[in-house]
Each structure stands twice: as C-alpha cells, then as structure tokens.
Amino acid sequence: MLATVTLLAGVALPACVTVRPEQREVLADPAMIFGSGGDAEAHEEHVLSNREGSVGGGASTGGGCGCN
C-alpha cells in the first residue's frame, strides 16, 4: 500500500510542477512537439507497419497494405 502511494506520488507530484506560460517559447517550437511531422511521418509509419511484424505506439487502423 505504502509502495503504491509512493509510486503514485512520485508520478503525480512532478506533474504538478508547471513550466510557466512565459517559459514555453521553446516548448512551442515544432521541433519539441510530438506528432508534428505531419504527412511525411504518417506515410513513413504506414510503410514501416507493412514492412515489420509489429505496430503500436502510433495510430494504425487497417485499410489494406498493398502487400500482395
């Protein structure tokens, strides 16, 4: 029980430590934003999901594979 509470506190407390809005200039740069790769990133994920035996960690909902 104590370990669970400690683990949850360890996860939750740092999450409350905020970066103030005036400090967010760098975080707003596309280089720091996950998923900002747009179509090029989506196309590559499509290719790799059809060339490897695993998917996940990204969005993939079927739709054929051009693999015949």
């Binding site: 740092p14 430590v17 970066v19 400090q23 967010r24 200039e25 760098v26 975080l27 720091m32 996950f34 998917v55 996940g56 960690g57 990204g58 993939s60």
Partner: peptide, 15 residues
Amino acid sequence: AWAPIFVTQLTLSAQ
C-alpha cells in the same frame, strides 16, 4: 513538460 527545454511522452497501445 518537465522543464522549459524538456518534454516526454509515454504511449501505451493495444490492438
């Protein structure tokens, strides 16, 4: 966002 210069993302997915 852990700091003004550092951000992480944890993703879990199942299909």
